[in-house]
Computed example of a mutant assay.
Amino acid sequence: MARKVYPLLIALFCISCASETPDPTPTPTENIYFPPITGTVWETKTISSLGWNQAAVQPLLDYLELKNSKGFIILVNGRIVMENYFNGHTQETGWYWASAGKTLTATLTGIAQQEGLLNINNKVSDYIGTGWTSMPLAKENLITNKHLLSMTSGIEDIANGDDVTPAKLTYKADAGSRWAYHNVYVKLQDVIAQASGQTWSSYFNTKLRDKIGMSGTWIQLDNNNVYWSTTRSMARFGLLMYNKGKWDNTVILNENYFNEATNTSQSINLGYGYLWWLNGKSSYHLPQTQLQFNGSLISTAPNDMFMALGKNDQKIYVIPSKKMVVIRMGDVANPENPTFALSGFDAELWTKISALYQ
Rank of each mutant, 00 (worst) to 15 (best):
A56G: 07
V318S: 09
S202H: 12
A308N: 02
G161Q: 06
S299V: 13
N224F: 06
V332A: 09
F204H: 04
F204D: 03
I316V: 13
W276H: 04
T44V: 11
P26G: 11
G88M: 01
T40L: 13
K172Y: 15
S321F: 10
M241Y: 15
Q290M: 12
K211Y: 02
R236M: 03
Q358L: 12
L8E: 12
A235N: 01
S201W: 07
E65N: 11
L61E: 11
Q198H: 10
T130K: 14
G116K: 08
K244M: 14
S99P: 02
G295L: 08
D346A: 09
G131C: 12
H285P: 00
V164N: 12
P59Y: 15
S49N: 07
A235I: 08
N205T: 09
Q288F: 11
L270R: 13
Q292I: 15
A333I: 00
N279M: 11
K322W: 08
E92V: 04
F293C: 05
L356E: 12
S134V: 03
M305N: 09
T29R: 14
T29V: 15
E156R: 04
Y242S: 13
A355C: 05
S299I: 14
P35H: 03
F237G: 01
A175R: 07
L148G: 04
W350I: 00
I15G: 03
D62F: 02
L278A: 09
T152V: 09
S196C: 00
T38Q: 13
K172T: 08
E43F: 11
I10S: 13
